[in-house]
């Protein structure tokens, strides 16, 4: 067994089991918003923020659900809370940074259906993390997501300037980049084994 200390949880969520590149969570924004670095980073940060909020809420909700033995409502309760959290972030961004709000466009409300967020809430429940561990797990996952999407955006900005055959252009190329990044991230597995 791995010692579930906080550093390990953070590194595990951010690098070894990176949400995007190893667990395939949150691919839609990863592919959709990673065109430019200046939108990719805020998207990563917004997602991290929602992750943190929903992780906290999921922890509280789960405690209540377990207390009343109604765990079958978990999925519905989680998704409702996440939707509200996203709404909150959306309103905040719209008020304070309208430019960024427009740049993120449809992908902002779509954070609700970002599997990374729900996945995070579910995983922390399955792993029986306590309160502090949950927060660290959420921070790690957010950091990992931001790192992945920023790396991807940097690569794609460079690729825009290079000559690529027509059939490969677009999604196929991004996907291949994702594969290479994922391959690179597998190198981190040596840090402490898989989950």
């Amino acid at each position: 067994m791995q010692p579930e200390n906080l550093t390990f949880i953070f590194l595990n969520a951010a690098l070894m089991n990176n949400f995007v590149l190893a667990l395939f969570l949150g691919l839609c924004p990863f592919m959709g918003v990673s065109g430019k670095l200046e939108t990719a980073v805020p998207m990563g940060l917004a997602t991290s923020f929602v992750m943190l909020i929903s992780s906290l809420s999921a922890y509280a909700i789960n405690a209540i659900l377990v207390h009343y033995h109604i765990e079958f409502l978990r999925l519905i309760a989680y998704i409702a809370v996440i939707a509200s959290a996203v709404q909150l972030v959306e309103m905040t961004l719209k008020k304070f940074t309208p430019g960024l709000f427009r740049a993120l466009g449809i992908y902002l409300p779509l954070i609700t259906t970002n599997c990374a967020i729900l996945g995070l809430a579910l995983f922390q429940t399955f792993k029986h993390y306590d309160f502090v561990q949950s927060i660290v797990y959420a921070l790690g996952a957010g950091a990992g997501f931001t790192l992945a999407i920023a790396l991807m955006a940097g690569l794609r900005e460079k690729l825009d300037l290079s000559e690529v055959p027509g059939v490969v252009r677009g999604a196929a190329l991004s996907m291949m980049l994702g594969g290479l990044l994922s391959l690179a991230f597998m190198g981190f597995a040596g840090l402490g084994g898989s989950h």
Binding site: L21, A22, L23, F24, V167, V168, A171, A172, L173, M175, M176, G178, G179, L180, S182, L183, M186
Partner: peptide
């Protein structure tokens, strides 16, 4: 082995997309 690991998923899907584009073209 790489094919059943995460990178394999990205790479195979990427190649499938290329084939799909070619066929459509």
């Amino acid at each position: 082995v790489v094919m059943i690991l995460p990178p394999g998923g990205f790479i195979v899907l990427s190649l499938m997309l290329v084939v799909f584009n070619l066929v459509n073209k």
